[in-house]
């Protein structure tokens, strides 16, 4: 009865349930990070002096170990999913801001000038010209954020079983069942690869103007 997919009952969940939970805990923070990153990045593009200090602060935040982040938050948000999701949103924000800024800045000046000359207002120009051209850089940032977020949810297992698939790791140690740890690692990795592939597909869908097999410049920041 100790199979690969036999989840101990104290986790209160099935394998599929853990996957759903894991995806929610990983992807909602990325979405939140994106919503915050878009205006912040636009501010950094508009006011150039803002970018270096923003980069400095975000790098420090990025360097704070996730576990420490979780533990400090327990005081405020308790041993809940939210405690796991807030740091992940911050990490996503940190990855996405430079990706979007670099992407938007990579739009050639002539293109912008042409858009302005055709009578595009600032908002329309941002939504219809700058953002679409920044899509490859944005998606590259999203790929890094999503993969690292999926990986980091597991650490939540250390603060009262809030790690979804990561909880299998604790169970593996508790019940001495290595196959549960293998299950956790493999399932997490496959989820990450699937989400990554989905984003690659999304980019192909959003940027039909890009040459096939063309490599978008990857941002300098990589997975945590």
């Amino acid at each position: 009865m100790n199979g690969f997919f036999d989840i101990p009952s104290d986790l209160q969940n099935t394998w599929a349930g853990l996957i759903g939970l894991h995806l929610r805990e990983a992807l909602l923070p990325v979405l939140a990070g994106l919503v915050l990153a878009l205006p912040l990045a636009q501010l950094c593009v508009r006011f150039r002096w803002l970018y270096p200090p923003v980069l400095g602060v975000t790098t420090v935040l990025y360097a704070v170990p996730s576990l420490a982040f979780f533990v400090v938050l327990i005081d405020y948000t308790g041993q809940t999913e939210l405690t796991v999701m807030i740091p992940l949103a911050v990490y996503s924000l940190v990855v996405l801001v430079p990706a979007i800024v670099d992407g938007v800045r990579s739009v050639p000046q002539e293109t912008l000038a042409a858009a302005t000359a055709m009578g595009f207002g600032p908002v329309r120009r941002y939504v219809q010209v700058q953002l679409p051209i920044a899509v490859p850089a944005l998606v590259a940032g999203l790929r890094v954020a999503v993969v690292s977020s999926i990986s980091l949810v597991s650490v939540g297992a250390l603060i009262g079983n809030q790690g979804a698939l990561g909880n299998l790791l604790a169970a593996a140690q508790k019940y001495d069942r290595p196959e549960l740890a293998a299950n956790s690692v493999l399932t997490t990795a496959l989820l990450a690869i699937a989400c990554d592939a989905a984003l690659v597909g999304l980019r192909a869908l959003l940027t039909p103007w890009m040459p096939r097999g063309g490599r978008g410049r990857r941002p300098a920041v990589m997975a945590k």
């Binding site: 597991s154 790791l169 001495d176 740890a181 956790s184 690692v185 990795a189 990450a192």
Partner: peptide
Amino acid sequence: ATAARALPSFGLLVLIVIM
């Protein structure tokens, strides 16, 4: 690189220590 990035560091550590 994609495969390596997908591997969760913490999970991998626990798995390797168990083994």
